[in-house]
Design a protein around this nucleic acid. Structure first.
Lengths: 185, 185
DNA sequence: TACGATTCGTGTATTTATACACATTTTCAT
DNA sequence: ATGAAAATGTGTATAAATACACGAATCGTA
């Protein structure tokens, strides 16, 4: 993370935004293999050449897109680090809701199974600082085991939530997951 | 109208589109005088300097915007010139519906009373070729009088339609106005 | 398998949009 | 009225996006 955030040219932001949105849309319509650079440039209303100014290929684009969302979540975690899980989760789940197309595509479709493990890694990473096995209720347990246990649990719930089309209200899911985490960590 | 339509740079189209949309939105929110160039560039997500590459000022922008819509309608008239009014009107009113924000703003708000007369002029212009005072039902009547008579009538209906929030279905209004015109011209 | 069409990745010259700075004018609250 | 803040219009250097063209790779299909 660069500290001195030099102002990014407005054109870069608009172009990348357009490309990422176009790509996310296309991902919800077809498999990654079926998406061509041509498709992306058409949808984004951008010259095909322009895409190569920002990304190596569609895989690089997908990578960067995932990395960006993970990073957004990372920032949210920091800002919510003082809250309980019950409270902080709401912020999390609201981010999922705001970026429905992306997460829905990534978690539900066969399109990108690579995302799940990436996402799980991240969740575990974030839980690390909260798990204490030297004292408290988890004293004596394996930290690694606990992290995998609850990491997978969280990912599963998020996945199921999207698979059900977000039928449960955000607040309810966020709160219940929060209760379980607050009780255990 | 330039015949050899040289391909316009994609950036120009996107920029102008953005500016015009931003401006149309702003027009529906405040008076023309209250809109600043800064507002427009902010809303359009475009550098303030960029606007001056395309327009002299906000009045020029409004002019060009109006002229463009009138011209779109002119093209629609040409393509519908073989149809009866009952049929052709539907195309017209559908265009109004598609560009709701613009026409609604222009016809209903106090913002731009200049548009009404501009619009009326155009309608009369388009009716000209259809009015025959040397034979038929209007034989002996003043062509100028007929044009003003039915021109104002049409404009009034369109205006009222927008003032009522398009509560009447498009097809109904289009058909009824069509019947009246088919009967009289 | 062969072949025609599509996509790809890239080089290049050019056009467009941008950031930034400046003096000037307008707006508006005190 | 007046003074600070905002908006204006413009010059300039630079960065980004574009159009276009090209040979190579890939794909679909006959």
């Amino acid at each position: 993370m660069i500290l001195v955030m030099t102002k990014v040219d407005r054109r870069i932001i608009k172009t990348q935004e357009g490309i990422k949105n176009a790509f996310t849309e296309l991902m919800s319509e077809k498999n990654l293999d079926e998406i061509t650079m041509q498709d992306i440039s058409d949808r984004a209303n951008v010259g095909r050449r322009t895409i190569y100014l920002h990304y190596l290929d569609k895989y690089d684009l997908l990578d960067k897109l995932i990395e960006e969302h993970i990073n957004e979540l990372r920032i949210l975690c920091q800002s919510a680090s003082e809250l309980s899980y019950t409270e902080g989760n709401l912020i999390w789940f609201e981010y999922f809701e705001r970026n429905y197309t992306f997460f829905s595509t990534m978690l539900t479709s066969k399109g990108a199974p690579l995302f799940r493990s990436r996402f799980l890694d991240f969740v575990i990473e974030e839980l690390k600082s909260d798990v204490n096995v030297t004292e408290g209720k988890n004293q004596g347990l394996s930290k690694d085991l606990i992290l995998k246990f609850f990491g997978a649990a969280i990912v599963e719930i998020v996945e199921a939530w999207f698979n059900n089309g977000l039928s449960e209200p955000t607040e309810v899911v966020a709160e219940q997951v929060g209760i379980l985490l607050d009780r255990n960590l």
